[in-house]
Structure formats: structure tokens, C-alpha cells
Design a protein around this nucleic acid. Structure first.
Lengths: 193, 193, 193, 193
DNA sequence: TATGAATGAGGATTCATTCAT
DNA sequence: AATGAATGAATCCTCATTCAT
């Protein structure tokens, strides 16, 4: 129980205020225990952070994994769009986890740099492959115009990255959804046959 | 001299390791003075940070300002592409400043949230207007296909945001440049007449 | 069972690393139980320490007692030598106990100072008496030269103390045995008729 | 000033209560500063301890050095006796230093074991050589009876070790001096021609 | 302008101890 | 007899900050 609450609170605070910006006492206080209680469950601050971060990363990876394994009954257009909306859903449903992952993927502290790059590259490859498959399929189906696959993949990844950033610094739902749709519409205009 | 060196080092360290992650003693050490010397120039840590952050933000704003004021002798396509390459140049030439701005625009500490949002929205508007003008001009010139201006603007801003993120987490120059060109190529394919 | 193992481990650790240098958790870990289990057998750390220390002291006292009660069938020379070799044996067989006693006899913490001095003085007297008897006997037998008994006693105690220290800071068995024999040889040369 | 007082107090407390038994706050309090002030002069507790310990060891080594270099105008007997009385003087004048050295030579914590053994063996050799020279000289002069040099050296070192221990656990000056004289008298009786 | 000395506040961590189970 | 969870107290240590010089 406490162990779980600790993770939850830690994930949120580490995501919002960063590792150094978050005191163990704050986490403990929110959970309703005294600081030393944390040490009954985690070796030290770094351990708590890593546990929480790994979990967040894992949940992100699982999400990507699922994305890449979805049944391909949809058209390429629908599938690609679905990628964006699923990413959006994930950010909404796992706000804390995604904030944490985003923060530490862009700004890793030295002691995390390696771990993070490793974990992230895996995920990145998985996503890249999934997108590539969708695009190739789309071309085979004649829905996507015959052109460089890497061009289409790079542009789509760029689109997703842009939306990631925007999700976290634009607060308005409407604005974000408009941005998402516009970005995709433009993309699709260039991609489709 | 010292004042200037302090700002330089502070900007780099605050950008790389964040506000809480950077000790004044570290900054002082790199500059070659003792910590209390900092107080001869800045009121306190927050003051040093704000000075440095404001300067970084300003230099980003100036860059955007210049972008938006460029003589429009180029075609819309060239102008838009120039936006991307100038952004790239800025990131390269002012790596420290842009890292700092990026970090605190995405993850502002509570005490900065307001200041930053304000400063950033100005800049965002300026950029949006500049892009809009280019696009309208391009449409008038018949180079850009007649379509929703906001669509084109949103997509372009998204593209720039995506590239911002990618600049800081992909280390390879070649990869980044390919991503930039691919993203733009796709954009342009959808935009052009 | 556990009670016994706790004492054993505690004696060793308290002897090696001192009272403050030894955490209850360490003791528990070596025994294979969790820390609170200790409280099923001992009131607190001090109680465990005192139990263990008292036992060590007792075992030392018993040893001294036995020494002093040995049947005096041997000659004075043999008896005195036997004192040294029995002390040596005791150090070897009860390494932990003797280390603990030595440590806290030389460096008693404030809360133990009195208890220890008391316990030790008893033992010291016993030993002194035993030595004195042997010497007096030796003189009566004409084996020991007629001279001040206190001189002979003091010197012999000094010899034993020196060997105690040396036992614990010289690791080599050979060296120690040589030292022991040499010290005794010299002593005897001065003592004998 | 403070730096010096810190060393002084630290030496006494570390000697009396041991490393773990001494809190930095205690040291600071006695000196009349707050705990963090210590960090202006020493890196951390271990650094303070090592500085103080090294100094104590050095002062002991210097004393041994001086002992071994004394002009040999005295007879062997006087020289040997002088060794003991000089050791006594040293213990009296540098009570804190010698207590510290004694404590950590007999009971080194793991992190000091090597350093101490090294430092101590040097000193031990120096002393051994000095004693050996005195004895050889004494034999050449015909004052000391012709016999095994190692026997005489070992016994003398044993004598010194015994006196070291006794100095710290017998509080009375008179008793100690009697012990010293008796131990030496016996030694000399066996050594002299 | 710069520093050495010092400090208050706070942070991570350890540890003996308690208590319900 | 033993443990998991929790805590109060204390420890070492860092850091921003002050102040006299």
C-alpha cells in the first residue's frame, strides 16, 4: 500500500519538479508517512527514482509495443492517425509517467544518461519499424503515393515529436486537438496518392 | 569580466543540470572565483538564474524577431526553409541559451511559470505571425496552394517544435539534417500548388 | 538457538568494531534474522552488549581462576611458563572474548568504566595472588633467587600485558611464540637462583 | 585558530571515544562553532580523523626517531632505561596523541588497517634497530652479557609494550613508576654481565 | 571586487526501538 | 519467536547566504 503510494507520488513529483527539485520529505508527507519510512521500501532516493522512472519508461514502452502490434485491419491512413490519437490518449491517461519520461529523455542527469538512451533507443526503433510497416503497407495498397519510405517515416516521427512537446506546453485541449488534426492533415496530403 | 564569465558558465550549467541541480559553488569554481564573489554581482541564486534566463530568452526572442523581419526577397518556399535552417543555426551557435530556454519552457519551476509563459507567448505570436505572412504571401504568389492558412501555420509550428526536440536528443548532425530536410520536404509537398 | 547465535556474533562484532561501530542490523543479518528479533531476547543494544561483555569477562575470570587453582605439582618455572602458554591458549580458543575484554578494559566507554574496572580489578588481584604464590613457593623451593617478591610479580604482570598487546597486533604465530619464549627466558634468567 | 582547536579537540575525543563514538557536533561544540564550520577546514569526518591521526602517528614517529638518534654518550644500561622514561614522558606530554595511536594501532577500523600497519611497522623497525644497536654496543663494552641479541631485543620490546598498556589502564602515577622500575630492574638483571 | 570564516536551514541516511500481527 | 512497517532522534553533509576584512 505505502510502497505503491510512494511510487505514485514520487512519479508525479519527480516529473513535475525534477529529481533534485523533489525532497524525499515532500514525497513522504504527501503519502502520510515520515521520511525514513521510505527506506523500508527503497534503498535510497536514487533507487526510488529509478524504480519509478523504469516503470514509467516501461509503461511507455508497453504502449509503443501495443501500438506496433495492433491488428492491421484499418487502412494506412486510419492506422497512422490512430498512432497519434493513441499517443494523445496515453499522455492523458498516464500524464505523470509521460511527463517523467519526456523530462528525462530530453534532460537526463549524468547518472541516467546511459540507461535512458538505451531504453529509449529500443522504443524508438520499435516505433520506427511500426510506422515503416504501415507506410509500406499503405503503398502496397496504393493508398500512399510511391515515394521514399524514409522520407515518410522521418516526417511522421517529427510530427509525433512536435505533438509531444506541444501536449506539455499548451494547456488547452481544443488547441491541442486542432494542432494534432492539422499536423496530420498536412502530413496526409503529402503522403496520399 | 567576472560578471560575464559567471553568466556564461551559469547559463551552461543551469541548462545542462537545471536550477536545483546546479550549485553556486560549481559555477564559481569553473569561473575561478570563490562562491561569495557571486554576490558582488548578483543578489542571490535566483537573481543570477533570472538574469541568465532572461538573457537567453531575449536572445531567442531577438532571433525570432530577426527571422520575422527578414527582407522578403526570397520565395515563400525558400523563406520557410530558411526559418528552419536559421533555427538550426541558432541552436548550434547558442546551444546553451536554447537548451536553457527549452528546458524552462517545457518544465518551468513554479516560481517561473508565469514569467516564462508570458515571455514565451510573445515570441510564439511573433513567430506565428511571421509564418502566417510568409504563407499568405506564398498563396498570393500562387506558389502555395489555396487552403486554410491556420492549417499550414499549425503544421509548420509543429514541424519546428518536432525539430527542436530532435535537435537535443539526437546527437548526430547528419541524422538531424536528414530529419530537417525530410520534414520540410513532406511539408512542402502538401503546401505547394 | 538464536539467542546463542546472537551472543556469538555480537561478541565478535563488538570486539572487532566496537560498540558504536556495530549496528544491531549487522548482527541480525549475520545471524539470519531481522533486527527486531533481537528484542525478543535482549532488552536493547546495551543489554545485549553487557550480556556479551559480562560473559566474555566471566570467561576470562574463570580462566584466571582456573589458572590460579591449578594443582601445584609443577615446579615454579614450569608453573609460570604455563601461565603464559595458558593465556596464549585462551587467546586462541576464545579469540572473540579476549579481544572484547582487551578492547573495553583499555578503552571503556563512560557508561562501562565503573563496571569494567570493578570486574577487572578482581581478576587482576586473583592473578597477582596466583603469581605471588608461585614465586614465593619457588623461593621456598630454592629455585627462585631470594629477592623482592613485588619486583618479580610486577615484572611478570608486565610481561603478560606485553604479550597480550602483541598477540593482537602481530598476526604471525611464529613471531608471537618466539616473543613469548624470549620474554620468558629473560624473565627466568633474572628470577632463578 | 579554529582549525587548530578543531584538531586538538578532535584528537582528544577520537582518542577517548573512538571514531564512531565521536560526533562532529561534539567536536564543534567544544570548539565553540557550529558543525558545518568544520567543513571549511576538513573535507569530511574521515579527513579530520585522518589528519589528526596522521599527526599523532607522526608525533609518535618523531619521538621514536629522536630516541633512536640520541647521542650515545650514556652507558647501555642508562640508554635503555632512558628509552622507557622517554616513552613515559611522551605519554604524559602527548597523552591525547598516544592514546589515539594506541587505540588505532590495536583496534584499527577496516578503512585504516593498511595505512596504520604501514606507518606502524616503520616505527617498529626503527625502534627495534635502535634497541639492537644499544644492546650490541653494550655487549661490546662488556656491560651486557654475551647472549642472543634477538632474545634481548624481543624481551625489551615486550617490556615496552607492557608498559604502554599499563600506562593507560593504571591511573596512579606511583604504581606506574614502580611497575616501570621493576620491569626494567628484572630486565637488567638478566641482561647485564 | 573578492575572500575566509561562519551559519541556518534543510536534505539524505542510519539506527535503535516500538508495535501490531 | 519473529517480522514488516513505522518512527524519533541523531548523523554527516551541502548549500545559499552573510559579514568583516
Amino acid at each position: 500500500m505505502t510502497r505503491h503510494k510512494l511510487k505514485e507520488v514520487a512519479m508525479r513529483l519527480f516529473g513535475e519538479k525534477g529529481y533534485e527539485g523533489t525532497a524525499l520529505s515532500e514525497i513522504a508527507k504527501e503519502v502520510g508517512v515520515k521520511t525514513p519510512a521510505i527506506y523500508a521500501f527503497y534503498e535510497n532516493k536514487e533507487d526510488l527514482f529509478m524504480t519509478v522512472f523504469r516503470e514509467a519508461m516501461e509503461s511507455y514502452n508497453t504502449f509503443i509495443q501495443e501500438l506496433s502490434e495492433e491488428q492491421k485491419e484499418l487502412s494506412a491512413k486510419e492506422s497512422l492517425y490512430r498512432l497519434l490519437s493513441r499517443q494523445y490518449e496515453f499522455y492523458q491517461q498516464s500524464r505523470e509517467a509521460s511527463l517523467l519520461v519526456l523530462r528525462y529523455v530530453i534532460f537526463p542527469p549524468i547518472f541516467l544518461k546511459e540507461t535512458i538512451e538505451e531504453a529509449f533507443l529500443d522504443s524508438d526503433k520499435l516505433l520506427t519499424n511500426a510506422i515503416e510497416q504501415l507506410i509500406v503497407q499503405g503503398m502496397e495498397d496504393g493508398i500512399i503515393r510511391d515515394q521514399s519510405v524514409q522520407l515518410l517515416v522521418d516526417a511522421f516521427l517529427n510530427l509525433m515529436d512536435g505533438l509531444s512537446m506541444q501536449y506539455f506546453y499548451y494547456t488547452s485541449k481544443e488547441v491541442y486537438e486542432r494542432k494534432l488534426n492539422h499536423a496530420f492533415e498536412m502530413y496526409w496530403n503529402a503522403a496520399r496518392s
